[in-house]
Design a protein around this nucleic acid. Structure first.
Lengths: 193, 193
DNA sequence: AGGCTACTATGACGGCCGTCATAGGGGGTG
DNA sequence: CACCCCCTATGACGGCCGTCATAGTAGCCT
């Protein structure tokens, strides 16, 4: 997360804060403090106000999740659906173990939280889409029929998001490891060649 | 939702409002208005303040979800894991179709949202537990080994919660129907007798 | 009747929110 | 130098928040 300009830092910090506080509870003053950004720049870079800032943070999160998928695949010698899913899950178990359960998924937070604006809801939908696309593409590359790939990707994201939720509530990664274990064989079963 | 006292109405209204606004965005004044309850009673019935009110709402939601499971089973001639899951999913697709995508799961909202207090987080964990227990019990009754039943219940709740999230973001029930369809055979495969 | 308890009414308090108006720096260009 | 444009500084505004103090009212118990 190299040294970027104030604008990018604010978007990134917004995503970070949304992850643990939710949209409504994240104040713009908190954002500038976290980003160590000049407060006066807020209205300058984000004339659309908090709504614009939040939307950009959600966009950022969607792109980040998508990139992660590609990175997981790049690190695998012989990728399989279950291995990809295991990597996605492990990313979260590792993070929970390392820094605690306070930070969840920003896209989930933006979806659930608050008097979320229509535009923010649309940003969340786009983020889920951006996340699912590389998964489905990867599954096809592993031999899953295109017809089944998007459904499988939806299942993977759903199970992961739900398990993240439960893990945070229980402060225990068990839900995550459970879904990875139980879903693995089913996912590999989609492969036809 | 028969005519209850003001106290119960406030708890119920809190759950309703949390479902669509989140915890932080739900104001106490909104609650009394929605419950048509006397404002002066808030501090009387809930000396623990908003925190207590939210916790009771989450508790209520957990019990409600658990009761729903029993009601689903009662309405089935020959219950199977996939049929139970389909019923759980259908409850949500029906609700989304009927009243829109504005209302999600209150337990998810309480988990994700905000400067949620430790006690609220614990209430959410208890709610998930209360929800999962009757599912696991039902699975055992259908012939799923006890060893596998809790894992399967966790998978079902995870996939459902995640799909609810995606469905709300996309304003489309497709994610829900997808997980029901894809997970069905796996769930029935747990049955050994 | 008197008194005690359970409940309700009302308004004020301090605090934080997102937004905006105003003004100042500061470097590159004419 | 003068100018302009991009960025930043600062403080005020109205509004809503959760909480609390104070003052009632209603009804049962003895």
């Amino acid at each position: 997360m190299a040294e970027r300009g104030p604008r990018e830092r604010m978007v990134f910090s917004t995503a970070q804060l949304i992850r643990r506080e939710g949209v409504t509870a994240t104040g713009l003053r908190d954002v500038v403090a976290h980003a160590e950004a000049p407060r006066g720049s807020l209205g300058h870079y984000f004339p659309g106000g908090k709504e614009q800032l939040v939307n950009e943070a959600v966009d950022w999160a969607g792109r980040y999740a998508a990139n992660r998928i590609d990175r997981f695949l790049a690190g695998m010698a012989r990728p399989t659906p279950s291995r990809l899913f295991a990597a996605m899950v492990r990313q979260w178990t590792d993070e929970f173990a390392a820094i605690g359960f306070d930070q969840g998924c920003p896209v989930a937070a933006a979806t659930v939280d608050a008097s979320v604006t229509e535009s923010t809801r649309a940003a969340a939908a786009a983020a889920f889409s951006a996340w699912r696309a590389p998964i489905a593409r990867a599954l096809v590359g592993m031999g899953v029929p295109a017809r089944k790939a998007t459904a499988a990707a939806t299942l993977m994201v759903s199970a992961l998001e739900g398990a993240i939720l439960i893990a945070r509530a229980e402060r225990d990664t068990r839900a995550l490891t459970t879904v990875a274990r139980e879903l693995g064989p089913l996912l590999d079963g989609y492969v036809t060649r």
